[in-house]
Design a protein around this nucleic acid. Structure first.
Length: 417
RNA sequence: GUGGGCGUAGCUCAGUUGGUUAGAGCGUCAGUUUGUGGUACUGAAGGCCGGGGGUUCGAGACCCCUCGCUCACCCCA
């Protein structure tokens, strides 16, 4: 074991996996920029109040934040998620609405790591601020859906719920509180603790002994106002119009307190572990106001990179690919020829690589093969003397040819085209 | 934070009831006469057996502690 290793829950993303990450983010960026979303790059660090304001009763904010006091006595925290930062940015800069943005990058939560759950984990996501149209909810969900399709995922399930308006939600929570309190002896010990903090979250319990009690609990749908119900109806009919399948799930309460109306979660079909939620989001009207801004509707989602890639692996799609170059330069005269030729090729926009440390030709040819290059340029003492070079195809049966050095660039361009 | 499993070469793993210089495959590097890859053969490098302490004549194997990974709870992406 080396003396130093990555901190728990944090890891190095090495090639070729890192290239896959880049392609993932690029695919996401293309999907959402094509829908009019611009990128926001918020800081990793925020005043801790930004996060406190949005989730007083959640573990994410109360127990899992990486927070510290900086040299200027500011109490700051590494962001545990990006929605709060986006809303803070909205309040700070007051862009024209509707403000449609996307982001990608790492977030930090101090949790016990396990597969698909890391202390530093990457998410991509979108947020829209300043519009309440239920069809916007549908657009947002559809963009997430489209992205999964684009990756090639076939077994993603969309779970959908509505938490109604704040007042509906409050009455619902009160009813839950009353119900669970009346049945408290039937709850698991862990759920009793949860109940004391947040009755809503008891619905999330995965402990089998809680199943019966939860099944008999009040339903949020019994508490919807007319507006909440019609908003939700429009979301559902919009999804149906787009042929996006979904499952209504009244137990879907989400982890953060700021959600109103529509909430949804994307679940990987092949993942049966506890980390099967690959993405989720919802409407959070009121969050901007909590951060000191005007009343502003908002909706968005975040997708976990790791979990989505795990789902990709399980389905055998969006595979990791090795970095390849087009040309490999073999130089047995000491390396200066390779130095010059690779420079020329790169200036011409042709990807190429070479060996170092004057290895044997055989060794360099092996490296050429492994590099994925389609052609090798071979330069030995004969070629230097004759001002020529050997162009050897590596992926076809074609014979290698010896050509004058001044035809190097044109012949390679031709061979690659 | 709570509980279970695991921790041997870069990677995947073997290591018999504790017994002498710790093994394999893959990978890496080098060779298989003359300047040429993918196959084959040969060889080499590479391990304080996660770390610390203990039991023992003797520990990779047993015990304790610790660190890390992993699974479940919890939480959530």
């Amino acid at each position: 074991m080396p003396e130093f290793q990555t901190s728990p829950g944090m890891r190095d993303i090495l090639p070729p996996e890192s290239a896959r990450w880049r392609r993932f983010v690029a695919a996401f960026a293309e999907t959402v920029t094509a829908a009019g979303y611009g990128q926001i790059i918020p800081p990793l660090l925020e005043d801790i109040g930004v996060f406190h304001r949005v989730g007083e009763a959640t573990d994410i904010v109360t127990k899992e934040m990486y927070d510290f006091v900086d040299k200027g006595d500011r109490h700051v925290a590494l962001r545990p998620e990006q929605t709060a930062s986006v809303c803070r940015a909205f309040v700070q800069h007051r862009p024209a609405t509707p403000w449609k943005v996307w982001y990608s990058g790492p977030n930090f939560r101090y949790e016990r790591p396990q597969r698909g759950r890391y202390r530093q984990f990457d998410q991509v996501g979108i947020e829209v601020l300043g519009a309440n149209d239920p069809y916007l909810d549908v657009e947002v969900i559809a963009l997430g859906w489209n992205f999964f399709q684009r990756l090639g995922l076939q077994q993603v399930h969309l779970h959908l719920n509505s938490l109604g308006e704040p007042e509906n939600r409050q009455r619902f929570v009160a009813a839950l509180q009353e119900y669970f309190t009346a049945n408290i002896e039937r709850l698991s010990d862990a759920s009793k603790t949860t109940l004391a903090k947040n009755a809503l979250r008891v619905l999330d319990s995965k402990r089998p002994e809680d199943n019966d009690v939860i099944a008999g609990a009040p339903k949020i749908s019994e508490f919807y106002s007319d507006d909440a119900r019609s908003h939700f109806d429009m979301v559902q009919s919009g999804l149906q119009a787009l042929n996006i399948p979904f499952t209504l799930n009244e137990k879907l309460v989400r982890g953060l307190d700021y959600y109103r109306h529509t909430t949804f979660e994307f679940v990987g079909g092949t993942l049966d572990s506890a980390q099967n939620a690959i993405g989720g989001g919802g409407r959070y009207d009121g969050l901007v106001e909590d951060l000191g801004g005007p009343p502003t509707g908002g909706i968005g989602f975040a997708l976990g990179l790791d979990r989505t890639l795990i789902a990709c692996d399980d389905e055998g799609v969006f595979a990791s690919t090795a970095a390849n170059v087009d040309v490999f330069v073999v130089d047995t005269t000491g390396g200066l020829e390779a130095l010059i030729v690779t420079q020329q090729l790169r200036e011409a926009g042709i990807s190429c690589d070479r060996s170092f440390e004057s290895r044997s030709m055989k060794s360099q040819m092996k490296a050429a093969d492994k590099s994925g290059a389609r052609i090798a340029i071979i330069i030995g003492s004969d070629e230097v003397a004759a001002e020529s070079f050997v162009l050897r195809p590596l992926r076809s049966e074609d014979q290698q040819v010896t050509l004058p050095r001044n035809e190097l660039m044109t012949s390679i361009m031709k061979a690659l085209s």
